[in-house]
């Protein structure tokens, strides 16, 4: 674990040098601005939505982007021949994703609190952001395994979000009945939405706990059975990126 700090620092450094940090900051400023312009009542509806986007889609995309340039520039080969285990290399990417999502959380929470006087359950939302981001960062690595290039990664992630968000939306519209809709929490984006919502409104405790346990278990399984075993082969595969 000794090298983890160096790896994290390296990742952050490169996010800056590759202008990915600038991109996320611009988006963040946009959201902060929008939060500021909203009515206090709307803020509690808007903030969880932004955090949901940021912790799911954005986290997966950002991890995927770093993987693609590392592979394209073959820097990944150079990392693989250092005494750093793959576990630490993957861990560094997850930590940096979580760090970025927490930054968004802090900026939005501060805007809501100081500019709009809106409070919510900060600790619960922060915890939700950490778990959701960790899962989606791993998901981003997995998607990178089978996406040919960055745009196909983007398309695959969009399909993931749209496909898995659709059933709950249909339920909200009353097209799918309540009986079936209860089970939609097994769709990760829906579980994530529930977890974030819990910081702003009352959510049944059972569903909240299920969300946390479920995403943590999924993360562990994704890491152990897909990301870690597939990583070396992914790194060594020649792609025409």
């Amino acid at each position: 674990m000794a090298k983890l700090g160096i790896l994290v620092q390296g990742e952050l450094d490169r996010l800056r040098k590759y202008n990915l940090f600038t991109a996320t900051t611009v988006v963040l400023l946009l959201w902060v601005g929008m939060t500021w312009l909203l009515e206090a009542g709307e803020v509690t509806a808007f903030v969880p939505l932004i955090l949901l986007m940021d912790s799911t889609m954005m986290s997966s995309l950002l991890v995927g982007a770093t993987l693609f340039y590392e592979k394209k520039e073959h820097a990944i080969n150079s990392i693989l021949v250092t005494p750093v285990p793959e576990t630490e290399y993957i861990a560094a990417k997850i930590i940096v994703s979580v760090f970025n999502s927490l930054l968004t959380f802090l900026a939005l929470a501060a805007t809501a609190y100081f500019l709009k006087g809106v409070t919510f359950n900060f600790a619960l939302v922060a915890a939700a952001v950490v778990v959701i981001t960790a899962f989606h960062a791993l998901l981003g690595i997995w998607f990178a395994f089978f996406s040919k290039n960055f745009s196909s990664l983007l398309v695959n992630l969009m399909l993931y979000i749209i496909f898995l968000m659709l059933p709950p939306v249909l339920a909200d519209l009353g097209i799918i009945g309540e009986k079936i809709a209860r089970f939609f929490i097994i769709l990760p984006p829906d579980a994530a939405g529930t977890m974030l919502q819990a910081g702003f409104a009352t959510v049944p405790l059972g569903r909240l706990i299920f969300g946390f346990v479920y995403l943590l278990a999924l993360s562990a399984a994704l890491y152990k059975y897909i990301v870690l075993p597939g990583f070396n082969q992914y790194a060594m595969r020649e792609t025409g990126v």
Partner: peptide, 28 residues
């Protein structure tokens, strides 16, 4: 061991020194 690959392997947006410094810190 030290490895030199047949293709370039450095981070393109980092300078040569920044590349070497990053990798240097991963070794004893």
């Amino acid at each position: 061991i030290g490895v030199s690959f047949e293709m370039p392997i450095s981070f393109s947006k980092l300078t040569a020194m920044e590349n070497l410094e990053f990798f240097r810190r991963l070794y004893k």
